[in-house]
């Protein structure tokens, strides 16, 4: 008894401190670092400027194309309504500042300065100027964490807009992603626009992703194309977060949310052309 008590007197506090440290580390792990990100946001808040208005620098050509786009979109919607096709459009977006990057080197993530209080939910789509950027995988009251599409675990079903050839993209931790086709001989050439396909389980169809840079049809097991993302992922400053109509429909297991893996439909879709 005496020995135990002496040992306790000498090491009790130390043991308690170790337990406290490990316990709080475990707590932080289980809450996914919410406390740290909240404090981080508090510090970074004064340095966040205002989103730069780019309207003034738009040249007439861009304005003309935008007007054409609006016209075509409304025509498209009318035709879809005539066909009785119901499509849920992505909701209106929240503009959010990018306040941080991933806390280690292996994951391609960004931290946004808006969170649950601003109506952002897990699964929301994040897009930058030019196309989609990623998907919200975790929210705290004032911050949210985005898994970028350039992360190797991000796999998204996409389609070549011109020929409707299907495939999926895989991140390469850079501004280029690899697109793998389901078809053996896809109709694709450099310059084609790639957008999300209706088979993607996590993103609504038709969102722009990037432009095909080069094609390798001899690649085994499936032909590949290198796609340049239309958004400069490494220089993101402001992004738009919009609600995802597919987020509610897809049952994401907690594990999937945790490690952010996105499983696009791996079924061979070659017969769906």
């Amino acid at each position: 008894m005496y020995v135990v008590r002496r040992w306790w007197d000498r090491n009790g506090i130390r043991l308690g401190l170790v337990g406290l440290a490990l316990g709080s580390a475990w707590l932080i792990r289980q809450t996914q670092g919410a406390l740290i990100y909240e404090v981080y946001r508090g510090f970074s808040n004064p340095f966040v400027g205002r989103p730069v208005e780019t309207t003034a620098t738009k040249d007439p050509k861009v304005l003309e194309l935008e007007q054409q786009l609006v016209e075509l979109q409304s025509q498209n919607r009318q035709l879809q309504e005539l066909l009785g096709y119901i499509q849920q459009n992505p909701g209106k977006g929240t503009v959010a500042p990018v306040i941080g990057r991933s806390a280690d080197h292996w994951w391609q993530q960004v931290i946004l300065g808006r969170g649950e209080r601003d109506g952002i939910q897990v699964g929301a789509i994040v897009s930058g100027e030019g196309g989609i950027v990623g998907r919200v995988v975790q929210v705290t009251p004032h911050t949210s964490r985005v898994l970028l599409i350039s992360d190797p675990t991000s796999q998204i079903g996409v389609t070549v807009s011109r020929s409707r050839n299907m495939g999926y993209i895989r991140g390469q931790s850079a501004n280029r992603v690899i697109m793998e086709f389901f078809d053996k001989v896809p109709d694709v050439r450099p310059g084609d626009v790639v957008s999300t396909s209706s088979y993607s389980q996590l993103f609504p169809p038709g969102l722009p992703v990037g432009i095909v840079e080069s094609v390798n049809l001899n690649k085994s097991p499936a032909p590949e194309a290198v796609v340049e993302l239309s958004t400069p992922i490494s220089r993101l400053e402001w992004v738009v977060v919009s609600t995802n109509p597919k987020a509610g429909g897809t049952e994401l297991s907690p594990q999937e949310n945790l490690d952010g893996s996105q499983n696009s439909d791996p079924d061979p879709l070659g017969d769906n052309q």
């Binding site: 490990l22 809450t31 945790l258």
Partner: peptide, 20 residues
């Protein structure tokens, strides 16, 4: 112990699998 503590925290801040 220090490595374990900080590793768990970093897991929480990024992704727990594989562990830091």
């Amino acid at each position: 112990l220090a490595g374990l503590t900080l590793g768990l925290i970093q897991d929480g801040m990024t992704a727990p699998d594989p562990t830091h």
